[in-house]
Design a protein around this nucleic acid. Structure first.
Length: 808
DNA sequence: GAAATGCCCCTTTTT
DNA sequence: GGGGCATTTC
C-alpha cells in the first residue's frame, strides 16, 4: 500500500487517505511503508534497515505526516495528537535521509519557546547536528536575520535597532504632536494598533485604503503611518511588523535575493499555522514558491490570535492556495481522558467555521469535567485554594496543576489567595521581565553605549536618574537635531559648545556625554558584564534605586542583578540586545512544585494533570469585547479558547464561575457562560461548592438562577450590555481639508531634515543682523561653520548654533 | 526643574 | 483600583 510515486496526484492521495482512516485504530506501524520518491540507492538502504529508530512509535497518520516529504502538505493536528513530535521527527528524517542539510531547512515557529523546544527535541533525535539549524526560529527572528544581511536594499543599515511597543508609541506620539494633532484625542497607542494591523496584512502606507485611514485623525492615519516609516528609516530602526513587511518588500524588489533563499530552503516547515497572519502567509508563500516543499502544521480549532491579525483562513484555504496539497489529519489524542476529550469536542462542534476533526482516544474515561459555581470571585479563589490543598494532601504534584484564566486581571485575586495559603505558584507570561521599568532603563543605557545614534534610548535615560535635565533642554536638543538631521547625542555634543543651554544643564550634559564616550571606549577593553555594571553604577542608576524608599526598589535592584547575570550568556552587549529585542520572555524559573497560573492564551501548547478554569461567565468568557467587535467570529474564537483550555487537562478539568465579580473595582452580577451549556451532560458533573464556602442563601439563590442554564431553556441572560460603543465626535466637521497634510509644517519633515543636512555650513556671516528666539535681536560677530558668536542687543555676547537664529 | 495633586483612561489576549 | 499624564505649586 501507499506507493505514492506521484505525491501531487489527487487520486493517489485520496485512496491513501481512505486506507489510513479506515485503519486508524491499528496501532502497529506498517513496517513495509516505503518513502515516496526516494532515490533507488536510498530505497535499497532503507530495505536493509527498514525500521529507522526515530520512526518507531509513530502511528500511521503521524508517520504519513513525517514521510510525505515532497510538495505542499497540511497536517491538521488536533490537541494532544503529537504535533511537535511529528514536526521534529520530520526534520530528523530530512536530515537523516540526507535530503537536506540542517542549514537547508527552514522551520518557523510562532513563539521562542516553541523554537527552543523544537531545537532540543531535534537534538535528542539526531544529535548535535541540530545545532547547525540556523533557520529554526520565529518568523520575527528569521526575518531579522534575513533583513540584517540585506539591510541596505531596504534603506537600512545592518545594525538597525528593533523597537518595542514602548519605543513605537513614544515615537508615534512625537509624530502626532509634530503634526499639531491633539495626542489626547488621537492617542498614539491607538495609532500603533492601527499601524500594527496594517502591517499584519502587509499593507504599506500607500496601500492603506482611504476608508481605513478615515478612522484616525480625520483620515490622516495613512499619512501618519508614512511619516512614521520615514522616521524609522532616519533612526535606522524597524518595529516588529517591519521584520516581516520589510522582508517581503526585500524579496519582491530583489528577485535575485529571493531566488537565493528559495534555492537554499529545500524544505519549509511551519508550526501553528493557524496563527499566521497575512504578512506571514505572503512571506511563506514567496519562499515556498520555488520548491513547493511546504509543510504546515496547525489546528484550526486552536486559532486564538485572530485579534492580533491571525487569519484562520490561511489554514482553511491551504488546499486552495497550494494546489495538489496533501492533507493529513492527526486525530488520535494521547493526552486527555475520554470525558475531557468528549466535553471539548462537543463544545467546539458548536463552531461553524472549521475544517472538522474528531478526536478520539484509547485512554480511560477518567472523571467527568467538574463544574462549580461560587457566590463571588473571592469565593471562587478560595475554592481553588481549597481543592489544591486537598490535592496536595494526596501527593498530587503542584507542578501538574494549572489555573487558566481569560484575562490577567483575574489573576490578582487568585494570587492573593495563594499567598495567604502559602501555596507556591508561578505566573507564566506575566509582566515580562524585559518590559519592567528598570530593565528597560538599563537596556536604554546599553543601547546608547553601543550606538550613540539611538535617539529613543537616549531620550529615555537622558534624565534618569534625575540630573536636572528637563523637558526644556530636551526640546532644544530635539530642535537642533531635527534641523541638522543628526542624532540627539550628536546634537548635544554641539550644544555643549555654545550658550543655548543654561550653564548647569550644559555641564551636566557634558559630563553625561563624556561618560558615554568612556563607556563606548570600554566596549573594546572591558568584559561586557563588567561594563554593564560600570555603566549602571557610574550613571547613578543603581544609586537611584538604592536611595529609593518605595517597597519595590529592592526587587528592582534584584532584577538588575538578574539582568547582569543573563548577560553572561552572551558574547557581547550587541548580541544580548539583539536577543532581548526579539525574545521578550526571560528564562522561566523552576517549575518544581509550584502551581502554574496563566492566561488561556499562554497555556496553548502546555499540558497539566489538573486544570482549573475559573471565570466562565458571560461577558468575561466569552469576552464581551470580543463579541462586540467581532460578532460571531469573535464568539467562535472565544469558544476555541475554551477548547484550548479544556484540552490542556490530562486527567481533571474543573470549570468554575462566580455569580458576582468585581469589574473596575465595582461588583457586578454575572451569569454563567453559554459555553457551560454547550458541554455534553454525559461528560460533566455539576459539583457543589465545598460546604465551608456556601455563603447562605444569597449565594445559593443567585447560583440556582444561573444553573438553570443546565436545562434546555437557557436564553441570553438578562445581562445584555447596554453600553453602546458610540465613540464621541466621529462626525467631525466637514470643513477639514481632505486628507491633505498641512502645508508649511514645522520643519519636522524628513525632507526638511535632508535639506538642513545638505546645508550644514552656515548661511550667516559676520555683521549679519539676526533674531534669536531666546536672546532677541543681535549682530553676528563671528561664524565658524554652524557655530556663531553673536552680540545680542540685550543679552550680550553668546555662542549659539545657527539653526536657532533667523535673519532679522 | 521637580514634587504633589488631580483627572481620565482603561482592561483580552502578545511575537 | 491603579497607572499614566497634565496641571499646579514650590
Amino acid at each position: 500500500m501507499k506507493t505514492e510515486l506521484f505525491p501531487h496526484a489527487d487520486s493517489a492521495r485520496g485512496s491513501a487517505l481512505k486506507v489510513e482512516r479506515a485503519s486508524v485504530t491499528d496501532p502497529l506501524p506498517d513496517k513495509s511503508v516505503p518513502v515516496p520518491s526516494l532515490s533507488l540507492g536510498e530505497k535499497a538502504r532503507r530495505a536493509v534497515q527498514p525500521q529507522v529508530p526515530y520512526l518507531t512509535g509513530l502511528n500511521l497518520e503521524q508517520r504519513r505526516a513525517v514521510e510525505t516529504l515532497e510538495g505542499p502538505l497540511l497536517v491538521l493536528a488536533g490537541a494532544g495528537t503529537g504535533k511537535t513530535r511529528v514536526l521534529t521527527t520530520r526534520i530528523a528524517h530530512l536530515i537523516a535521509t540526507g535530503r537536506a542539510f540542517p542549514s537547508q531547512i527552514l522551520a518557523v515557529t510562532f513563539t521562542n519557546k516553541a523554537a527552543r523546544e523544537m531545537k532540543e527535541r531535534i537534538t535528542a533525535l539526531v544529535g548535535a547536528v541540530a545545532e547547525g539549524m540556523p533557520w529554526l526560529g520565529t518568523f520575527h527572528a528569521i526575518g531579522t536575520k534575513i533583513l540584517r544581511r540585506h539591510a541596505e536594499l531596504v534603506g537600512l543599515k545592518s545594525d538597525f535597532a528593533i523597537l518595542d511597543t514602548d519605543d513605537q508609541i513614544r515615537l508615534l506620539k512625537q509624530i502626532i504632536r509634530a503634526e499639531n494633532l491633539d495626542d489626547k484625542r488621537w492617542p498614539a497607542r491607538q495609532l500603533a494598533h492601527l499601524i500594527d494591523s496594517w502591517k499584519n496584512r502587509a499593507l504599506t502606507p500607500d496601500k492603506v485604503s482611504a476608508g481605513e485611514a478615515q478612522g484616525f485623525a480625520n483620515g490622516r492615519g495613512a499619512a501618519l503611518y508614512k511619516l512614521y516609516q520615514e522616521r524609522l528609516k532616519v533612526l535606522n530602526a524597524v518595529d516588529f511588523g517591519d521584520l516581516l513587511v520589510e522582508t517581503i518588500r526585500l524579496f519582491r524588489e530583489n528577485p535575485d535575493v529571493l531566488a537565493r533563499y528559495q534555492d537554499r530552503f529545500r524544505y519549509i516547515l511551519v508550526d501553528e499555522y493557524q496563527d499566521t497572519n497575512v504578512a506571514q502567509y505572503l512571506w511563506l508563500r514567496l519562499l515556498a514558491q520555488g520548491r513547493q516543499n511546504l509543510c504546515c502544521v496547525g489546528d484550526d480549532d486552536q486559532s486564538i490570535y485572530g485579534w492580533r491579525g491571525a487569519e484562520v483562513d490561511n489554514i482553511l484555504r491551504f488546499e486552495h492556495d497550494f494546489p495538489g496539497a496533501a492533507v493529513v489529519r492527526l486525530e488520535r489524542n494521547y493526552r486527555s481522558t475520554a470525558h475531557i476529550l468528549a466535553a471539548a469536542s462537543h463544545l467546539i462542534a458548536h463552531n461553524e467555521d472549521r475544517l472538522g476533526k474528531t478526536l478520539h482516544t484509547d485512554g480511560a474515561a477518567g472523571e467527568p469535567v467538574a463544574i462549580t459555581g461560587a457566590w463571588d470571585s473571592e469565593e471562587e479563589a478560595r475554592q481553588i485554594g481549597e481543592v489544591i490543598e486537598t490535592l496536595q494532601a494526596q501527593a498530587h504534584p503542584l507542578s501538574q496543576i494549572a489555573v487558566l484564566v481569560r484575562i490577567s486581571a483575574q489573576m490578582r485575586e487568585i494570587e492573593d489567595r495563594f499567598v495567604q495559603l502559602g501555596l507556591p505558584y508561578r505566573v507564566i507570561g506575566g509582566p515580562r521581565f524585559y518590559e519592567r521599568l528598570e530593565i528597560r532603563d538599563a537596556l536604554a543605557y546599553f543601547r546608547c553605549v553601543v550606538s550613540q545614534a539611538d535617539d529613543l534610548a537616549f531620550e529615555r535615560i537622558f534624565n534618569t536618574p534625575k540630573r536636572g535635565l528637563g523637558d526644556a533642554t530636551l526640546q532644544i536638543l530635539h530642535a537642533y537635531a531635527r534641523h541638522a538631521g543628526i542624532p540627539l547625542m550628536q546634537a548635544a555634543r554641539a550644544l555643549i559648545e555654545t550658550e543655548e543651554l543654561k550653564p548647569k544643564q550644559r555641564s551636566t550634559l557634558r559630563d553625561l556625554l563624556a561618560a558615554f564616550d568612556r563607556w563606548s571606549r570600554q566596549l573594546e577593553t572591558v568584559p561586557h558584564t563588567e561594563l554593564a555594571e560600570i555603566v549602571l553604577d557610574e550613571s547613578g542608576y543603581t544609586t537611584m534605586w538604592q536611595n529609593d524608599r518605595s517597597p519595590e526598589a529592592g526587587g528592582r535592584l534584584d532584577n538588575l542583578k538578574e539582568l547582569i547575570r543573563t548577560l553572561e550568556e552572551f558574547p557581547d552587549l550587541q548580541a544580548f540586545l539583539e536577543h532581548v529585542s526579539l525574545v521578550m520572555d526571560a528564562s522561566e524559573g523552576d517549575s518544581h512544585e509550584r502551581v502554574s497560573l496563566m492566561t488561556l492564551h499562554a497555556a496553548k501548547g502546555l499540558e497539566f494533570d489538573t486544570v482549573f478554569l475559573p471565570g466562565w461567565e458571560e461577558g468575561l468568557f466569552p469576552n464581551q469585547r470580543a463579541l462586540d467587535e467581532q460578532g460571531r467570529a469573535g464568539l467562535e474564537e472565544e469558544r476555541r479558547l475554551a477548547y484550548v483550555g479544556l484540552t490542556r487537562a490530562r486527567k481533571s478539568a474543573r470549570i468554575m464561575f462566580a455569580s458576582n465579580r468585581r469589574i473596575h473595582g465595582l461588583w457586578n452580577a454575572t451569569a454563567p457562560s453559554r459555553f457551560i451549556d454547550e458541554l455534553p451532560e454525559a461528560h460533566v458533573e455539576v459539583k457543589e461548592a465545598p460546604a465551608a464556602f456556601s455563603y447562605g442563601n444569597y449565594g445559593r439563590s443567585r447560583f440556582d438562577q444561573g444553573s438553570g442554564a443546565f436545562g434546555s431553556t437557557y436564553n441570553t441572560p438578562g445581562w445584555t450590555r447596554a453600553r453602546q460603543n458610540s465613540g464621541p465626535g466621529f462626525g467631525a466637521p466637514t470643513g477639514a481639508p481632505p486628507g491633505g497634510r498641512r502645508g508649511g509644517g514645522h520643519g519636522h519633515t524628513i525632507e526638511g531634515e535632508i535639506v538642513a543636512r545638505a546645508a550644514a555650513s552656515s548661511a550667516f556671516r559676520a555683521g549679519d543682523r539676526v533674531f534669536h528666539q531666546k536672546f532677541g535681536p543681535g549682530t553676528v560677530a563671528t561664524a565658524d561653520g554652524n557655530k556663531l558668536t553673536i552680540d545680542f542687543d540685550k543679552a550680550g555676547r553668546k555662542a549659539v548654533i545657527d539653526s536657532f537664529v533667523k535673519p532679522a
